[in-house]
């Protein structure tokens, strides 16, 4: 399957990654090559095969509804690039 610049731009937007024009060009070439290789799997007949979304034969893993100790806000926020009081702070949301 071919991938065009428009698709790469859209996907990069979904992934929230800024791409410079040069980067975009390089990615286009590389992704084209990688996808060309990956497309190999489209030859296989897999109509009746079940997808292996989970490789383990285990199911119903649950935990009891028992409280654990939470972090103190100081610990929770100690790695934060920006905070205000007990809050994490982010720049204004402009859609």
């Amino acid at each position: 399957m071919a991938i065009d610049n428009e698709t790469i731009r859209h996907v990069a937007h979904l992934a929230r990654i800024d791409l410079q024009a040069k980067e975009l060009e390089r990615l286009h070439v590389q992704l084209h090559e990688i996808l060309g290789f990956i497309d190999k799997i489209s030859n296989l007949n897999i109509e009746d095969v079940l997808p292996a979304s989970h490789i383990l034969p285990i199911s119903n893993v649950l935990r009891e509804d028992i409280p654990h100790t939470s972090l103190t806000p100081e610990r929770a926020l100690e790695n934060a690039p920006s905070k205000k009081g007990n809050f994490f702070s982010v720049p204004k949301i402009i859609e």
């Binding site: 972090l71 806000p73 926020l77 809050f87």
Partner: peptide, 8 residues
Amino acid sequence: APNTCVCP
């Protein structure tokens, strides 16, 4: 209080 019921 904010961010007191949180864990990793």
